[in-house]
Design a protein around this nucleic acid. Sequence first.
DNA 1: CCTCGCTGTAACTGGTTTGTAACCTCTCCC
DNA 2: GGGAGAGGTTACAAACCAGTTACAGCGAGG
Lengths: 232, 232
Amino acid sequence: MPKRIAIVEDEAELASLIEYNLQRNGYQTLILRGSGDTLKSLEQYRPDLIVLDVMLPEIDGFEICREVRRSSVLARTPVVFLTARSDEVDRVLGLEIGGDDYMTKPFSPRELIARVKAHLRREEMDNEPETLETGPFKLERTARRVFLDGRELDLTSTEFRLLEFFLTHPGRAYNREQLLEAVWGEQRYVTLRTVDVHIRRLRERIEQQPDNPRYLTTVRGFGYRFEEKSEG
Amino acid sequence: MPKRIAIVEDEAELASLIEYNLQRNGYQTLILRGSGDTLKSLEQYRPDLIVLDVMLPEIDGFEICREVRRSSVLARTPVVFLTARSDEVDRVLGLEIGGDDYMTKPFSPRELIARVKAHLRREEMDNEPETLETGPFKLERTARRVFLDGRELDLTSTEFRLLEFFLTHPGRAYNREQLLEAVWGEQRYVTLRTVDVHIRRLRERIEQQPDNPRYLTTVRGFGYRFEEKSEG
DNA sequence: CCTCGCTGTAACTGGTTTGTAACCTCTCCC
DNA sequence: GGGAGAGGTTACAAACCAGTTACAGCGAGG
């Protein structure tokens, strides 16, 4: 689930600086030098956002942007221009270009990240319901609270995300791999058995008898399942 | 909840470019070509803002604006004119345009969004109550005063804005990023941890025991939340 | 030109959370 | 009933995280 960002930049040093800062913030990156097949590479990579230098040796950055807008795959992908001079800014701001934002060099890494995040946030906008009721559980997303039979549960961040996942997918069994991907994210450097420990911790919070769980049951030889039935 | 914006524009390409940029920023849109039944469509859609081209083939943009002002449903809806030439600007300014605005082509997507946001914010401001009471707190917007149990609090500017934000969004958890955007604004690039310091300063003003806060609570691993409940 | 208050940042601290390994227990199957 | 494999449980160290303090830069106002 990490977002992919394409960096179209011919200066190797600047490109890797940008890459470094994006990766530090959990983004996947692809650097393109900006030659003739840039568009093809972009369409293949399908980035969630494109950082695009205006001044490229072989092809104009604006031209790439125009092609991006015309591409059915990429048309809605936000483009952040990098420009060196203010007269380029004027062209970025030209309506026909279709860029979403720009930064003038030199820019700070913090500014880069802030702008990237701002644009990606718009895309994410969840259509998930605000409150989530499953059996005797009630989870308020925006308040970041969970209640069991009306009593609020005191959960750590990981426990919250784990329970949130189970509450949104009740009745289904998940193996450890799937749980790691769903709750920890794709770039998990975590052992499979870590799941067991967190299941245990969560059971201690939500089960009256953690040894004989009623909600968070084990599917032996496979993984775990959250029971939506409330009967005993 | 998302704001609706009507685009009255006959050039299909320009219209869809505007639509694209508005939708990217979370707005709902409706494109009208500007024929005779434009007013009826507008009244039906009830937009929060209208983007209106001055030059339309069938009907004058100014005429539509006049009709909008006469309509009981739409009368208070902000109108942003699109004009190609500066002599049209004179005409726009010649009208009693109230809270309206204009943009000359070509204009940048960022400018469009900025203007739209500015108008909608003003709209919201007007709708926001002058005084705001949440629990034992009472905030007077125009006077820029806050009272806790009737005693006035002595807050700095940042503390005031931070508290104002929390008072208008009680019970919800916000991470540092969201707080920065809401209180510091989008174009501020300050460190995330700056939030912590201001939270602490605010706690010292509003909490009897800043170490054991009653209102401004920490959501560990996430951010902060203002509790609307006043019980202990 | 000086002072004062506000703001943002870095550094340090103490507590909490998290991931892992090691060991234990259960269950299934022979 | 014994063994193998799977999950349960525990302990612990590292990482993380928020609280706190100190301080420097800045701008306003004297």
